[in-house]
Simulated assay, not measured.
Amino acid sequence: MKLNLQDIPRVESISKEDFIKHYFKPQKPVVIERFITDWPAFTKWDLDYFKELAGDKMVSLYDDRPVSHQDGFNQPHAKMTLGEYVDLLKSEPTKYRIFLWNILKEVPELQNDFKHLDLGLKLLKKLPMLFFGGKDSHTFMHYDIDLANIFHIHFYGEKEIILFDQKQNKYLYKVPHALITREDIDFSNPDLEKWPALKHAKGFKTQLNHGEILYMPEGYWHYMKYKTTGFSMSLRAIPRNPKNLAKAIYNFFIMRFFDNAMRRINGQKWIDWKNEQAILRTSKYGTS
């Protein structure tokens, strides 16, 4: 038995009006296949280009090791120059990923290679973020701290993506006081005997290829696995739903500070308690 996932709808291109009507207002995901072919980045951006332009920049790296009480919120697992990281990606499989690399802050000239999408949402123009990963590396299932509307633009390689909306929280083994599910769930091939509540979750799936854009509505859970070495860029707009905006404010100013404080006070016991609670709180929603 597999997860209950439907294919994310695809369009070759789309007007602002149709995007707002059919996807933003009903908060449904969509893949737009051929919307950025006129961007210089569409043809220019590859690993060698980034190494040449920003190879000396230090980057923070993350892998799939379990969360530790010794780690701060989004604390990196390693650092190296972008040039060294590109060489690593080319030479051998690696679990290391670049996560939330602000290209305008680090390499301002890259803003000449892309445009801000005109699809009816006011994008945060100072926060275009890049993500890199080696073959078979993946993120944990999570949602973003700001519950933003996200346009995830893939530039290189192939990426598998699974999404769930916030209505599925009770089935996903969500870890309390966090933005992730249990880290030991392999969402690309989950053990539904071990994690039976997942049988009730209804989600979406797709594979992104070069130049394709995935729109992820506010607060959508997302799991991303690099089928090949690749990289993507995300553009975001603040949530319009007042409840989601309130959740984002809570996450920024209360949740993350509370969680870090509890890690300092209780150490690994806090992490273990949260993981246990993820199972206990999910199990009451049915396992058959």
Rank of each mutant, 00 (worst) to 15 (best):
K44F: 12
N149H: 13
T139S: 14
D259S: 13
I145S: 10
K199E: 03
L110Y: 09
E160S: 14
K90F: 03
Y143W: 11
R10T: 10
W101I: 02
I14E: 06
I265E: 04
Y171W: 08
E33T: 14
F114P: 06
M224N: 10
F155K: 03
K28P: 10
K269N: 09
N4M: 11
V107A: 15
R263D: 12
F258L: 14
F50R: 01
T181K: 01
H142L: 00
H222P: 07
L117S: 05
I162M: 06
A178M: 02
D136I: 01
P108E: 05
K95H: 11
S232C: 03
K16P: 08
H22C: 15
K16R: 14
G230H: 00
K28M: 13
L280C: 09
P93D: 14
A261Q: 12
L245G: 13
H69M: 12
D56P: 01
H152A: 05
K95G: 14
L89N: 04
G134H: 02
M262F: 08
D7L: 10
H116Q: 03
L89E: 05
N112R: 15
A78C: 06
W270N: 10
S232D: 04
H154S: 01
D18W: 07
I36F: 00
L208C: 03
D87F: 09
D46W: 02
Y220G: 05
T43E: 14
P29K: 08
F164V: 04
A148V: 13
D87Y: 09
L123N: 05
L119Q: 01
N244H: 15
G157L: 00
E109R: 11
K2D: 12
M224L: 12
K79T: 14
F155C: 00
Q166N: 07
S68C: 01
Y156T: 01
L82M: 06
E92I: 07
L245H: 12
L127N: 13
L124Y: 09
P176G: 07
L179F: 12
D146G: 13
K79W: 08
I279F: 09
I185P: 02
K202N: 15
S68Q: 08
I279S: 04
L123Q: 10
K225A: 03
I238H: 15
N275L: 07
D71Q: 14
G211C: 01
Y220C: 06
M216Q: 10
F35G: 12
F257E: 15
P26H: 09
V86F: 04
P9D: 11
E106C: 09
N251P: 00
L235F: 09
D7I: 05
R65I: 06
D146L: 11
G230K: 01
E160M: 12
I213N: 06
T206R: 05
N251F: 08
N260M: 15
Y143K: 10
S60H: 14
L123R: 05
L110D: 09
T282R: 00
H142Y: 01
A237D: 08
L100H: 14
F19E: 08
